[in-house]
């Protein structure tokens, strides 16, 4: 029987420093065994436990899309014990991955609909995977208009910068990057994500909104979406909680009767309204 607590061995293949503060890094991980790679079937929205023997585990959203073959990407902010250790890791180091865990963004529901992605700061990771997935030529025709609004505090805090600028040039998605405060060389939007959303005002009809960002952004984004006519069951959010097992047993990540690790991390706004405000 498969042991869900055993980490799958992976090698750190590449490390990319994402931001000026140098506390966010993207790790490219390659499975040591082919059968592990083949068995790791996931969709954007899911996460995995990154596991360092002797230190511990931390749950991180998968930042790569299943269409990117041969590796997994994890964008990790240095916060706790495990993430700090990870930031000290070097290319070639062996770590573990446990997953994929949790549910995915509602791809069935998104099929033949417009997709609006609203994200802020460091929370863009699984939504980057979603953009990448939808833009893949094998999938693009399943979805209609794709609008992405992504913001960070400063230009230096934006993730995946080169990709963002490449997406901006494409005509199969509408990409709006904004920062709270620009610098001398900044020529794009300046302003908070909810304000930009209000300005762009994407049509709510037949559109699914995926929202992920810091609590303050979510707090001010939801009313704007409502104003634009989005219903609660067309808005989806991805949540974070302290986790250990990742499989709905250790008991700490629940919000009401839902385990974020197993029944989430993606919830519709309608689902969340039925749950206690305890997150």
């Amino acid at each position: 029987m498969k042991n869900p607590y055993m980490p799958i061995p992976v090698r750190i293949d590449n490390i990319n420093i994402e931001n000026d503060a140098r506390d966010i890094k993207t790790f490219r991980l390659v499975f040591l065994n082919k059968e592990d790679a083949d068995a790791f079937n996931f969709m954007p929205g899911q996460f995995a436990e990154l596991s360092i023997l002797g230190v511990g585990e931390c749950p991180i959203g998968i930042a790569s899309s299943p269409t990117e073959k041969g590796y997994l990407l994890f964008t990790v902010k240095r916060t706790g014990v495990v993430t700090t250790k990870l930031h000290h890791a070097e290319i070639g180091d062996i770590i573990g991955v446990r997953g994929p865990l949790g549910n995915t963004y509602p791809f069935e529901k998104m099929r033949n609909s417009n997709v609006l992605i609203v994200s802020g700061g460091f929370a863009f990771t699984t939504l980057r995977a979603t953009v990448k997935y939808i833009l893949d030529s094998a999938n693009r025709f399943n979805y209609r208009d794709l609008t992405v609004i992504y913001g960070a505090r400063t230009p230096g805090e934006l993730l995946y910068k080169s990709e963002l600028w490449a997406w901006e040039k494409r005509n199969d998605l509408a990409m709006q990057v904004t920062v709270d405060k620009g610098d001398k060389s900044w020529s794009r939007y300046e302003g908070f994500v909810p304000a930009v959303l209000k300005k762009i005002a994407p049509a709510a009809k037949q559109t699914i909104a995926l929202v992920c960002g810091p609590p303050i952004m979510i707090k001010f984004t939801l009313p704007v979406l409502k104003e634009l006519g989005f219903s609660d069951d067309s808005i989806f959010l991805s949540l974070e909680m302290r986790m250990k097992c990742g499989i709905g047993k250790c008991g700490r990540c629940n919000i009401g009767h839902k385990y974020v690790c197993k029944d989430g991390p993606v919830f519709s706004s309608a689902e969340l309204q039925k749950l206690p405000q305890e997150y």
């Binding site: 230190v55 250990k244 097992c245 250790c250 008991g251």
Partner: peptide
């Protein structure tokens, strides 16, 4: 049945 998982070295 809540539990913690920790590493010891």
């Amino acid at each position: 049945h809540c539990f913690d998982v920790t590493d010891e070295v």
